[in-house]
């Protein structure tokens, strides 16, 4: 398998595009013509070849450009990557998980050679060739979470497990849907989920914490989450709200297809065996509406989901300003035909 890495931007001139194959492999998040919260967690088992579920850590055509965007965010705001002192072992745990998984799944892109604690890592797409001692931070160019986070698409939260709870005690977060690591660091599972409407009353988080704290090593799980983003911007952070908030004012019936993007997070959950922490990678995929409606099943379903969304979720997902306009635009792409079950195109 060869991946042609795109040269593109996620800011300013927004040259991000999905290739035709990239559109078809997009993880469309709705398995039926409606949406409500659920603990929609399933085993993160290898999925269909070519799909985003094929490997534990998906590498796609946006890899190199996303890592360049991350470097820009970190240069402006180093606090996007933080690890409390007790999370050092978990950081190494995660580095090991990513390196062993990627070297196994993408041998033409990544190579890991180990001789006891002496490791040799080659990342060909990013031109990295480093030798270091596993567990010894001074042998890496930067701390282990930052090192591997700069080479892995998606955000990465390391959750310490204590007191039957999970604690956001380390992370690398630059492609987030309007939440802040610097604000959430040190919070527990219920605290950082406090702003989510409806789900607390439904008992979703109580059931989720019981499941998550029991995840065994080698048996990761996954779920999809979604929102909408104006322009293909990865860094929609509270810190930078003045830069992207006004984009919402640019949405008109004429610009929806070009500017509006379905933003899907492939969230996975893995036990880190050396530290007993959990890692929660949140991988962001973007799909512009003009591309989305080229898949007839997705066009019909997207209209029905957005049209019937509970008002609390319209507000929480930040689309109050243009919700009626969206429904009208999507209605033109829904011929009323029935849709097949499941998320994949027909």
């Amino acid at each position: 398998m060869t991946i042609t890495f795109r040269t593109e931007t996620f800011r300013d001139d927004f040259t991000f595009r999905n290739s035709p194959a990239g559109i078809r492999r997009f993880p469309f998040p709705f398995h039926e013509d409606g949406y409500m919260y659920s603990v929609n967690i399933e085993p993160h088992r290898p999925g269909a070849p070519g799909s985003v579920f094929e490997h534990g850590f998906d590498v796609d055509e946006h890899y190199v450009a996303e890592m360049a965007d991350r470097a820009l965010v970190l240069a402006e705001d180093p606090l996007r990557c933080q690890a409390l002192p007790h999370m050092d072992l978990a950081s190494w745990d995660y580095l090991e998980l990513v390196m062993t998984t990627k070297a196994r799944d993408y041998p033409e892109l990544f190579t890991l050679e180990t001789d006891g604690d002496r490791w040799h890592w080659t990342n060909r797409p990013l031109g990295i060739d480093d030798r270091f001692t596993f567990g010894v931070t001074s042998t890496l160019p930067c701390p282990p979470l930052e090192y591997i986070g700069r080479q892995t698409q998606g955000d990465h939260c390391l959750l310490d497990q204590r007191d039957n709870n999970l604690w956001m005690d380390a992370g690398m977060v630059t492609t987030q849907a309007d939440w802040s690591l610097d604000f959430d660091i040190g919070m527990n599972f219920f605290e950082w989920h406090a702003p989510v409407p409806l789900a607390h009353e439904m008992g979703v988080f109580q059931r989720a914490i019981k499941f998550l704290t029991s995840i065994p090593q080698g048996q990761p799980s996954r779920r999809l989450n979604w929102t909408l983003t104006v322009n293909p911007r990865l860094d929609t952070s509270p810190e930078n709200y003045p830069k992207w908030g006004p984009d919402k004012l640019t949405v008109t019936p004429d610009t929806i297809g070009e500017k509006m993007h379905l933003r899907v997070e492939l969230q996975t959950f893995w036990r880190l065996p050396r530290s007993n922490a959990l890692v929660f990678p949140i991988r962001c995929y973007l799909l512009r509406f003009d591309d989305l409606v080229t898949i007839p099943k997705w066009a019909r379903r997207m209209h029905r989901v957005i049209r019937d969304l509970p008002p609390e979720l319209v507000t929480y997902k930040g689309m109050s300003r243009y919700h009626p306009m969206l429904v009208e635009w999507l209605a033109a792409h829904d011929d009323g035909a029935p849709t097949s079950p499941g998320i994949f195109p027909d």
């Binding site: 002192p85 007790h86 999370m87 497990q161 204590r162 065994p216 090593q217 007993n276």
Partner: peptide, 12 residues
């Protein structure tokens, strides 16, 4: 079975 830890050190 693979190891499971219900008695982990608190590394803080």
């Amino acid at each position: 079975s693979a190891p499971v830890n219900l008695f982990a050190l608190d590394l803080r």
